[in-house]
């Protein structure tokens, strides 16, 4: 058979070692599923978003925009900004791949997720010699499975809950974002970016129509942070 060959043992190893990660991804998926149907997506659409996008943070960010009926272009643009961090991850992990095949790299790219990136990077640092690419694919499959199962169960459960406001679910999205943001604050630079983004986003939100304030703030506050700080990470 022609085409790229994947090392099944490495894929299985990546999968098996990612089982602990699956627990938190599954819980994360449950929350996403509930919020997705409360934001107006159907169970099927919530499931499809996981298969097509497979990037939790941006999927979360899209929910208030879907709920508000924001234009597709704004949602897609916001998704791109949030997922630009994959560029750094891709540049970093690509240096650890030994295979050259284009198709294999393109397939592995689909599984470049925060969690699988972290697992594959840790594996590469052990220098055991196995394929980092296939290890990441295995880890990505584990994350993919946990994320989808969590989302479907969450979405089915969310359908049973009635009016979002009665259960405080209108605030649940804000709480979820706070829960995602807090672990990202690791240094002075992050606090600075947070403060700039807080002032800028509220100002832009009150000034402009629509949801451009997220894009505007996402680009400028991070740029301001990068200009003011030096490397700390």
């Amino acid at each position: 058979m022609s085409g790229p060959t994947f090392d099944r043992r490495q894929i299985w190893k990546g999968f098996a070692e990612s089982v602990p990660v699956m627990v938190s991804v599954f819980a994360f998926g449950l929350v996403y599923g509930v919020l997705a149907v409360q934001s107006g997506l159907t169970v099927l659409e919530a499931f499809l978003s996981c298969v097509i996008v497979l990037a939790g943070m941006s999927q979360f960010a899209s929910l208030p925009l879907f709920a508000a009926g924001i234009s597709p272009l704004t949602i897609i643009g916001t998704t791109f900004i949030i997922n630009m961090r994959h560029l750094i991850m891709g540049a970093s992990i690509a240096g650890k791949f030994t295979e050259r095949g284009l198709f294999g790299k393109a397939a592995a790219s689909y599984f470049l997720i925060d969690e699988s990136f972290a697992m594959a990077t840790a594996y590469a640092e052990k220098k055991k010699g196995g394929s980092v690419r296939d290890y990441m694919i295995g880890s990505g499959i584990a994350v993919f499975a946990a994320w989808n199962i969590g989302t479907i169960l969450g979405a089915l459960f969310g359908n049973f809950l009635g009016d979002p406001k009665e259960f405080g679910l209108d605030f649940a999205a804000a709480a979820a974002f706070i829960g995602l943001l807090v672990p990202q604050i690791r240094g002075k630079g992050d606090i600075l970016v947070l403060l700039i983004a807080a002032a800028l986003s509220v100002g832009a939100y009150l000034t402009f129509e629509g949801s451009w304030y997220i894009l505007i703030t996402g680009i400028t506050a991070s740029l301001a942070g990068a200009l003011v700080t030096r490397d700390e990470k």
Partner: peptide
């Protein structure tokens, strides 16, 4: 560029949260 991109998630998440709770 690495530093800039690494700050994007914090900037975006803050931008989603703050208007929701402040206004």
């Amino acid at each position: 560029v690495v530093r800039w991109l690494s700050y994007v998630p914090v900037a975006v998440l803050t931008a989603i949260i703050c208007p929701m709770i402040a206004a």
